[in-house]
């Protein structure tokens, strides 16, 4: 069997809080991302999704376990990995135009090719002609598409996404989900997305992992056997979609109940 592009093995992350004590955010997370697979991790707010994604991408040193990207340990964000953050207005650089923002993603390519790649990437996300505009001149949805273009322009093996659609309105979100789905189908990268939105995770993914409350572990893995390509109108009406969504939701609610339950030592 093919070796996974990204493996997260018994990842543990503790964060030193202000008073100096260690706060265990991620306890034990193991998951694998295979070639051209779309995997989501869902969990309630504060369950440590962002922390998990940071550690898995090399932005934060884990306290235990390991992350392997194409078999090599991850110590910084590896070449071949791109990240889309939740807060597009703090991830795109406001001092650069859209074109120059995207060009940073393409900095590994020599100059004549870089320009064409940037143009292609912008076209892929429907931002052709916006190259000379500044991020703050665009709507939230357009900014997130620009962030997506900046990630895609490097032709990554793995695309990491931290609640990429959480900061836009519902209609824009549907549209962005389909942009991501199309990009994923047309390219050959694997995607790892963390989100609190169960419907979104089921709609886009091949597998969905459910995270427990903090300190987080994997509670369940659910295989999403819905046919592709998927569409909001058709897929979301399928009996199987409703079933899968209910199944994931049930596990997420379990995690939620755990977190509000009384601690053992009371």
């Amino acid at each position: 069997m093919l070796e996974p592009v990204l493996s997260i093995n018994h990842l543990q992350v503790s964060i030193r809080s202000r008073d100096g004590s260690m706060n265990e955010v991620t306890k034990d997370v193991t998951l694998e991302l295979r070639d051209h697979e779309f995997v989501s991790v869902v969990g309630p707010s504060g369950s440590g999704k962002t922390t998990l994604l940071r550690a898995a991408s090399g932005l934060r040193m884990p306290s235990g376990g390991e992350v392997l990207f194409e078999g090599r340990p991850v110590t910084e964000v590896p070449k071949g990995m791109a990240i889309v953050f939740q807060e597009y207005n703090k991830s795109l650089f406001p001092w650069l135009t859209i074109g120059k923002n995207v060009a940073i993603g393409a900095k590994e390519y020599p100059q004549p090719e870089r320009v064409t790649r940037v143009e292609e990437a912008l076209e892929q996300v429907g931002l052709k002609g916006f190259s000379t505009r500044y991020p703050w001149e665009l709507s939230g949805g357009m900014q997130q598409r620009a962030a997506l273009a900046r990630a895609m322009v490097s032709n990554p093996k793995v695309l990491m996404m931290d609640e990429p659609f959480a900061s836009v309105d519902a209609l824009t979100r549907n549209h962005l989900e389909d942009v991501v789905q199309r990009l994923w189908a047309e390219s050959n990268f694997s995607a790892l997305m963390v989100t609190h939105d169960v419907g979104e995770a089921v709609y886009l993914s091949d597998r969905v992992f459910v995270l427990s409350a903090r300190p987080s572990t994997i509670l369940a893995e659910i295989k999403i056997d819905l046919p592709r390509p998927r569409s909001h109108l058709e897929t979301k009406q399928m009996h199987r979609f409703v079933e899968l969504q209910a199944e994931v939701l049930e596990r997420v609610e379990e995690a939620g109940r755990e977190s509000v339950g009384l601690p053992d030592d009371l």
Partner: peptide
């Protein structure tokens, strides 16, 4: 978040 974006871009 700007710094992380920068790191993510290498």
């Amino acid at each position: 978040r700007f710094l992380e974006s920068g790191s993510a871009l290498g």
